[in-house]
Simulated assay, not measured.
Amino acid sequence: MDGVTSSGLFPLQRCKTIHLVRHAQGIHNKGHEKDHRAYSSPEFFDAHLTPLGWDQVDNLRKHIKSCGLSKRIELVIASPLLRTMQTAVGVFGGDGYDDGVNNTPPLMVENTGDSGRPAISSLNCPPFVVVEDCRERLGVNPCDKRRSISEYQKLFPAIDFSLIENDEDILWKADIRETDEEVAARGVKFISWLCTLKEKEIAVVTHSAFLFQTLQTFGGDCHPIIKEEISKQFGNCELRSMLLVDRS
């Protein structure tokens, strides 16, 4: 019976399943592989996905469909940057697009971000919403600065941008980079907000540093192996599912 002490029970109604996804490979990631200074280049402003990134999106989409996950997710939340929204709609969006069906706007218009991809349907998929609190570490690097919301709304017509307060990006500063502690605090705030939502199974498409710093704050009451599983770095387009428990 020694194993009983390492087990636990919690009411299901106080739990949510959160599917965390890091965006697929962006042009800044590819540039960084060749030159570690690439993230500071204006060339990678609001970086879009590479062809390899879109292949990663297609592979993850096949996986979530084959395992039935695509039918269980009730809400998709994404960071308001081009690479995260492309990843989100590519993985969790509807199949194909026909602008003659009920005049329904697409999740993403054709060739967004020089992708060469067709439009993505908003039919037969969960709703999509973007939230500033799950953005990448803010400041200095142009790849982490977003466009205006009015620009994004033309590219992603069926995504809900109503939770974004400012059209222009007032959070990103050219000369100030968020600290680890500031990213983690923002992440904890975001996780607390997830607990208030009615949906029980949610996908979140976000960024490497945001995930790493946020998840470092969790698992302190677990075995070190469990904590490592929670907080280890994410690969591009990696999906990791976790149970979010509301202890309040």
Score class of each variant (00 low, 15 high):
residue 1 M to C: 09
residue 2 D to H: 13
residue 8 G to P: 01
residue 11 P to Y: 03
residue 11 P to C: 06
residue 12 L to C: 02
residue 15 C to F: 01
residue 15 C to G: 02
residue 16 K to I: 06
residue 22 R to H: 14
residue 26 G to W: 05
residue 29 N to K: 01
residue 29 N to Y: 01
residue 31 G to L: 08
residue 33 E to Q: 13
residue 34 K to F: 10
residue 34 K to Y: 06
residue 35 D to P: 01
residue 37 R to Q: 13
residue 37 R to S: 07
residue 39 Y to D: 14
residue 40 S to N: 11
residue 41 S to Y: 03
residue 41 S to V: 03
residue 46 D to T: 03
residue 48 H to S: 12
residue 49 L to H: 00
residue 49 L to P: 03
residue 57 V to G: 04
residue 63 H to S: 15
residue 66 S to T: 13
residue 68 G to I: 00
residue 69 L to H: 05
residue 70 S to Y: 02
residue 71 K to P: 04
residue 71 K to E: 12
residue 71 K to G: 10
residue 71 K to C: 08
residue 73 I to S: 04
residue 74 E to V: 04
residue 78 A to V: 08
residue 80 P to N: 15
residue 81 L to D: 06
residue 87 T to S: 13
residue 87 T to Q: 08
residue 88 A to N: 05
residue 91 V to E: 01
residue 92 F to V: 04
residue 93 G to R: 01
residue 95 D to P: 01
residue 99 D to L: 02
residue 100 G to N: 12
residue 104 T to S: 02
residue 104 T to D: 00
residue 108 M to N: 02
residue 108 M to V: 01
residue 113 G to H: 00
residue 114 D to A: 07
residue 115 S to C: 12
residue 116 G to T: 04
residue 118 P to H: 00
residue 118 P to W: 06
residue 119 A to I: 12
residue 121 S to D: 09
residue 121 S to E: 02
residue 122 S to G: 10
residue 122 S to M: 13
residue 122 S to E: 14
residue 122 S to L: 01
residue 124 N to C: 15
residue 124 N to D: 15
residue 125 C to S: 13
residue 126 P to E: 04
residue 127 P to M: 12
residue 129 V to P: 04
residue 130 V to A: 13
residue 131 V to N: 14
residue 134 C to S: 10
residue 138 L to V: 05
residue 139 G to R: 12
residue 141 N to P: 02
residue 142 P to A: 14
residue 142 P to W: 12
residue 148 S to R: 10
residue 152 Y to H: 07
residue 152 Y to N: 09
residue 154 K to R: 12
residue 155 L to R: 03
residue 156 F to E: 01
residue 156 F to I: 06
residue 157 P to V: 00
residue 157 P to F: 00
residue 159 I to P: 06
residue 159 I to K: 03
residue 160 D to S: 09
residue 172 W to R: 09
residue 177 R to T: 06
residue 179 T to M: 09
residue 180 D to Y: 05
residue 186 R to T: 13
residue 187 G to K: 00
residue 190 F to C: 05
residue 191 I to Y: 11
residue 192 S to P: 01
residue 192 S to A: 08
residue 193 W to H: 09
residue 195 C to H: 11
residue 195 C to G: 15
residue 201 E to K: 14
residue 203 A to M: 08
residue 203 A to E: 12
residue 205 V to T: 00
residue 205 V to H: 08
residue 213 Q to A: 04
residue 215 L to I: 06
residue 218 F to D: 04
residue 222 C to P: 02
residue 222 C to Y: 13
residue 229 E to T: 09
residue 231 S to P: 08
residue 233 Q to E: 15
residue 234 F to G: 03
residue 240 R to Q: 11
residue 243 L to V: 09
residue 245 V to M: 11
